[in-house]
Design a protein around this nucleic acid. Structure first.
Length: 298
DNA sequence: AATCGCAGGTTTTCAAGCCC
DNA sequence: GGGCTTGAAAACCTGCGATT
């Protein structure tokens, strides 16, 4: 058996067990029903299956245990380490694209501009090796282009966009640069001293990428209509989201977050389906912005 | 270019251990 | 005792270089 096949089998087992707990026989049956799995011949003996279970735990950090009374294998503690989750998503996507290519056009992608992800590898290398990078940056709000030389610290994803967090050598201020507005990236040979900056901590209470403002994170309570609320529950606005109330009239979530511009825009995008309950300051601000938008039509 | 044989690795088979 | 685990040996694959 090739390594490739083993890896595919691992992913197949994970995605099957993610559906529901299954016994070894059930897993084999499910694979028999799956044309892709049949084509790749992902079947295995029980012993191999058991070894797979163990390998999956060490490689993917997903613990799978067998319930002896039901004979079913179940994913116990889905640590769901973000990295491996992302890997798996991309793996699934890649597989789907490959299938779609050979079978038709059932995959419909959102049409969008390139995200600048081709810079990811280069910037990651630079930040790991403390190498300064230079690039042309196209500003968001006007057409001007500036040349930057920065010390890359981290790469962050926010709202489906990738950003470079870096220290601008010009004024020594830590800034965010959207990768899709970076051009002519050049990794220099100049080394810089590692910078003390806990990127994760800094952005923990932020909604998107806006940071460095002096706003402190506050407790925010939002009340959604049941329809919209269920959607938000399945796709949380922020990792601090907690369900605190759920009845026929409304669904309430609490957050601990900086109420920055981008978070307010997100709230406004839900229109009349959402109401700010707390804090008062945010409530009045949203109200003001809504009135402002109404006045545009007078 | 095709074939052979080896080395390293994986899977299967089988037996024994262990837990419910 | 049944069935999952574990360990070890045998069988089998695969890649690679040497040979024809």
């Amino acid at each position: 058996m090739s390594v490739r096949q083993t890896i595919k089998r691992h992913y197949k087992i994970i995605s099957l067990l993610r559906l529901r707990p299954m016994s070894y026989e059930e897993v084999q049956d499910m694979m028999a029903d799956n044309p892709d799995a049949v084509e790749e011949d992902l079947f295995s003996s029980q012993r191999t299956f058991q070894r797979d279970i163990k390998d999956i735990e060490t490689i993917h950090k997903i613990e799978i245990k067998c319930n002896r009374s039901t004979k079913k294998y179940a994913i116990v503690e889905d640590v769901e380490e973000t990295h491996s989750q992302r890997l798996r998503e991309n793996f699934d996507l890649l597989n789907a694209i490959r299938l779609s290519k050979s079978f038709g056009n059932q995959l419909i992608f959102e049409e969008r501009k390139p995200l600048g992800t081709h810079h990811l590898a280069g910037l990651l290398h630079a930040s790991q090796n403390f190498l300064e990078v230079a690039f042309e940056y196209h500003k968001f709000w006007d057409t001007s282009v500036s040349t930057r030389k920065v010390k890359p610290i981290a790469l962050k994803e926010a709202r489906n966009r990738w950003y470079l967090i870096a220290d601008d050598t010009k004024d020594d201020i830590i800034k965010n640069f959207s990768l899709d507005r970076i051009q002519k990236l050049e990794i220099t040979k100049e080394k810089f001293k590692p910078i003390e900056y806990q990127a994760y901590e800094e952005f923990k209470d932020s909604f998107g990428i806006i940071n460095g403002t002096n706003e402190d994170p506050v407790k925010v309570i939002l009340s959604f209509t049941p329809r919209e609320g269920r959607y938000v529950e399945s796709l949380p606005l922020h990792h601090s989201q907690e369900l605190i109330l759920n009845n026929e009239k409304e669904i309430r979530f609490s957050y601990f977050i900086r109420p920055t511009y981008d978070f307010r825009m997100e709230i406004l995008s839900y229109g009349d389906q959402v109401k700010v309950v707390e804090p008062k300051a945010l409530q009045t601000q949203i109200k003001k912005e809504l009135q402002c938008s109404i006045s545009n039509y007078k």
